[in-house]
């Protein structure tokens, strides 16, 4: 079946190495265009918020950073699960490739949230459900990376870190729904909710473009780091040597 050839190709390092190399420039340039336009639209074109005035503009980096940190963690957990269940090495490699970018944007999300919270709520930090669960996400990323580097044996590193990634994924819906389940200081969803987004178009479009830009950036990082993982892992493979002779 066509679906399964596709799945098998995804498990083949030579195929993934080439595909990632071919897609990376598109993701990279796409990300650059989206982020430049999104920042211009958000910081210059969009009108100030009627309540928060110009402080609301922090949303153009805060919300995309939150999105990146969550989508990246989810992808990492799915890859770790595939690696664990089907013993697919490349899936473990993908999970490992995703961790640093996710971790750094989990931090950006917290830091920009803090900078936004100070003028709006009057506090840098509050032990509130949304903020605490996002902090746990950062610790899960850091734990995942620490666990990987604690093992000299790559297979063991893959397997034990995969278990942590999979267990930690329960935190993802907790972060998303925390503002509804608990009485939170954090505002509810603006974009990702059932009815129409509660934002005028001039504000919304740059934000959506920023979401797209951060997603493309994450894919660029994934492609680049995954290629590095493959180069390190496929030590003796003949295809790699041929590929390198041709000029990678």
């Amino acid at each position: 079946m066509a679906t399964w050839t596709w799945f098998h190709k995804l498990g083949s390092p030579p195929h993934v190495y080439r595909i990632a190399g071919r897609f990376a420039p598109w993701f990279g340039w796409g990300a650059l265009l989206c982020i430049v336009y999104g920042l211009f639209g958000g910081l210059v074109l969009a009108p100030p918020d009627y309540q928060q005035k110009d402080a609301f503009r922090i949303i153009y980096v805060h919300a995309p950073a939150a999105w990146l940190s969550l989508s990246c963690y989810t992808a990492m957990a799915v890859a770790a699960f595939v690696g664990l269940v089907w013993r697919m090495k490349i899936a473990h490699a993908a999970a490992a490739a995703l961790a640093p970018v996710g971790a750094s944007f989990a931090f950006v999300c917290l830091a920009t949230g803090s900078l936004w919270g100070r003028p709006m709520w009057g506090t840098w930090w509050e032990w509130d459900a949304r903020l605490t669960s996002q902090l746990i996400l950062l610790f899960l990323y850091l734990g995942y990376m620490a666990l990987r580097s604690a093992h000299d044996d790559l297979q063991r590193a893959d397997r034990s870190s995969a278990v942590l990634a999979i267990v930690g994924v329960v935190n993802v819906p907790i972060i998303h729904y925390s503002v509804y389940w608990w009485n939170s200081l954090h505002q509810g969803a603006t974009v990702m909710k059932a009815d129409r987004p509660s934002m005028p178009t001039e504000m919304l479009v740059p934000l959506l473009v920023m979401f797209l830009g951060f997603t493309l950036f994450q894919l660029w990082v994934l492609c680049t780091r995954l290629r590095a993982e493959i180069l390190d892992r496929e030590r003796n493979a003949r295809w790699l040597q041929e590929q390198l002779r041709e000029g990678a």
């Binding site: 910081l43 980096v61 920009t112 900078l115 936004w116 100070r118 003028p119």
Partner: peptide, 17 residues
């Protein structure tokens, strides 16, 4: 609008990252 001390560090941190 008086929020420069909060907006610009946020943008800078994101771009830097």
């Amino acid at each position: 609008g008086g929020y420069a001390a909060y907006v610009w560090p946020s943008i800078g941190l994101a771009i830097g990252t």
